[in-house]
Design a protein around this nucleic acid. Structure first.
Lengths: 214, 214
DNA sequence: CCTGTTTTTATACGCATGTATAATTAATCT
DNA sequence: AGATTAATTATACATGCGTATAAAAACAGG
């Protein structure tokens, strides 16, 4: 058996685990705080350990940030994906998906703000982690687009690109919503729905260069 | 005459002007460097002045950042707008505009990377400055959309939202291109063109909720 | 109980930052 | 020439950071 969780080890047992540090880091991240601004000492302080003890659990602060991003991404993908697949009436899937997405801005876990606050700044490992999560979002959306199109008998011309356009636009609008009060968020949802439907409509007929501007 | 440029003042003349500080700041900003990471001492060092002298020209480092963002925005809007208006064949305006945009990633002034690196992090004044520039981009694009649609006899259903969707998507894709080698950038342009045409196509017929997914 | 092993901690160093204070410099005005 | 005025500078302080080093603490095996 390799590496059991309750393996008896030799030396002094860890007073804390990776999970505790992650929790401490999350407790520091409000909706306005970016992961990139977390410092090693700050996280250690919140976790109740000495600064140097951090290194026993993560090689550096970037590794923690990447870990947080990955966790946020996979959690959100499950939430959003489940919601999307549970929607039956296809004519409301756009609006409902967008509303659910925006609702996640206020979720207790704070995962969506975490992901949105990292534009494209920070270390390389950092940006790649965010980008990877966005690509996963795109992949799953593409699958759902194909599923919906097959079930309702319409075509999607460039499903991967349609999924990309939708994903990127949703995240950009979500980022904008992050700094807005609820009232403005509502009309941002309305605007987003219209914009998303433009993409979906436009993806439903094949493009000829001459046809795009008649 | 109020406040002439060559006004004789009383005390010791400034050894340096706002412009020099702006130049110094720009010299520090490579394509990978975010404005938010500039420090007061660093800029002062590059400008050849003592740290405290900075305060004679800007109230704080954020004011300089906002100034840089505004300058980058207005310069780019002129470049992009001029290019768009100089394009005559409407069937290639999308591709050409996108290509010109991406070319600006390597422009000497470095204004586009400057704007792209500021996702939505930093101080409020900061984010608002970026957002304001994006809104200006949207406004000008909307005008051009209306001009083109009038000239070629087609309709754009929600011109403001179409302009917003296009602008935000272009900026997101540009941000992605920022970290890519030329080869990947070329296919990113191709993908972007397809996505943008989806939006434009989708904006050309009015949306009914039932019609979006037949 | 002693030894080895591993984690944790305390202490400390060097560095960079923003900014407060007072002195210095260079110009104009009387 | 001397006073005035404004910009620059030198010096210094407190803060926070990452991390290097060595000592202390908590466990298992002998």
């Amino acid at each position: 058996m390799p590496d059991n969780a309750v393996t008896k080890r030799r030396g002094r047992p860890p007073a804390i685990g990776r999970e505790d540090i992650i929790r401490a880091a999350l407790s520091l991240l409000g909706p306005q705080r970016s992961v990139a601004t977390l410092t090693l000492r700050e996280v250690a302080r919140a976790a109740g350990i000495a600064p140097n003890s951090f290194y026993r659990h993560f090689p550096d602060i970037d590794a923690l940030a990447v870990c947080l991003i990955e966790r946020a991404g996979s959690t959100l993908r499950r939430i959003i994906g489940d919601a999307r697949r549970s929607l039956e009436r296809p004519d409301s899937v756009v609006r409902m998906s967008m509303e659910i997405f925006i609702e996640q801005l206020d979720a207790d876990d704070g995962f969506l703000p975490l992901l949105l606050r990292e534009g494209h700044v920070g270390s390389d490992a950092f940006k790649q982690a965010v980008e990877a999560q966005l690509c996963h979002f795109e992949d799953e959306l593409q699958q759902d687009l194909l599923r919906l199109s097959a079930a309702h008998g319409f075509v999607v011309d460039h499903p991967a690109l349609a999924a990309r356009a939708i994903t990127r636009l949703v995240f950009v609008m979500g980022t904008q919503a992050l700094d807005q009060p609820p009232a403005q968020r509502r009309q941002l949802v309305e605007q987003s729905v219209v914009m998303l439907r433009m993409i979906i409509d436009g993806a439903q007929r094949p493009q000829t260069q001459a046809a795009t501007l008649p």
